[in-house]
Design a protein around this nucleic acid. Structure first.
Lengths: 181, 181
DNA sequence: AGCGGCCTGCGACACTTTGTCACATTCTCA
DNA sequence: TGAGAATGTGACAAAGTGTCGCAGGCCGCT
């Protein structure tokens, strides 16, 4: 077991290379040894090689389901702490993720600190360490808007439809400054 | 144990008497012996008296939390199959419910058949359909609110402070039902 | 019991943000 | 090049938000 080593090991699986790189960096800065993969096979292999203590798994990995990976990893190591992290959250998948052994389920965007906090929470732990930096609603909204806008190649009308928001409103929100906090 | 009796026993707890009556009737028609309560104390008492095999619990029972009941009932009988049923569904509460031992989490409206089906399923299923579109802004906000509220153990004032939002506003938002999508 | 502190639900009201409709411009690409 | 989609804005009603205030409830302290 490498849990006796200096740094805690963590497996990160997300099909977006950029997201992986950024988050991995943030986690390394917080003293984790991070291994990243962008598909199920890669994730399983890394898990076999390094037997990590923690894992962060995207729900949607290409055309594969992160739930499969949760199941597979749990079968390999029942002590593994996993959190699902996704931009396509749903109650149904959240329920299954927890049933399959994930310790938590978060929606993007989430800060590295939030993720670590989620990993730390034990199952049914009554004494939660402490809360941390709670993203303000405005900020969260801004991030989401930008992400969806990006996914729609900057098409405001399409983004507004996807967001279930009136185009006029989206335009107005976008015109405002990038909120700080 | 009365599990050897003819009909399977079920505890139904919801603060809406009408809803209780209607659902109880539907369940009885499907051959369940149903006991109903409209608050936590009543639910615990009935559970103690009849030691039911199944339970259907609302998330919001008056000013009380159905999660408390889930916790209490699980402590009384670890074999009890419980489903949460709520019109104020959120990922945060769903995760919590499953961790506390609920077998499933459904959103109102749900048919009697759906509920029974949920009670029957207890293992995680990685084949669950993965999400389609990103969440709407409204939905994202609702989820975020619920998450922060949960992190603050249901303390509305603390959550409002953490969110940088006025308490009055948070109260108003929480009273509304989450939007579908 | 009495007190202070903190939380909660809710009414009221001025102020802001959205939802909509409308219309005159660009794009976009078959 | 032309139809369909996208965009930037103005205007106005509807809905949401920031604030204050107040009464009641729930501790913990003295």
């Amino acid at each position: 077991m490498n849990s006796t080593h200096d740094k805690p090991t963590l497996l990160l699986v997300d099909d977006d290379p950029t997201f992986c790189r950024v988050l991995a960096q943030a986690l390394e800065k917080r003293d984790f040894e991070v291994y990243t993969a962008t598909d199920l096979a890669g994730g399983l292999e890394l898990a076999g090689d390094h037997n990590p203590e923690y894992a962060i798994i995207d729900l949607r990995i290409g055309h594969e389901s992160g739930l499969e990976l949760v199941k597979g990893l749990k079968a390999m190591n029942t002590d593994l702490r996993m959190v699902m992290l996704t931009g396509y959250a749903s109650i149904a998948t959240a329920v299954e993720a927890i049933k399959l052994g994930a310790t938590h389920y978060l929606t993007k965007p989430a800060s590295a600190d939030e993720i670590i906090h989620a990993l730390a929470r034990h199952t049914g732990d009554p004494a939660v360490p402490v809360a941390e930096n709670p993203l303000s609603v405005k900020r969260l909204e801004w991030e989401h808007l930008q992400k969806v806008l990006m996914e729609n190649n900057g098409n405001i009308s399409a983004a507004a439809r996807a967001l279930g928001m009136h185009r006029r409103t989206l335009q107005r929100k976008l015109q405002k400054r990038p909120t700080r906090t």
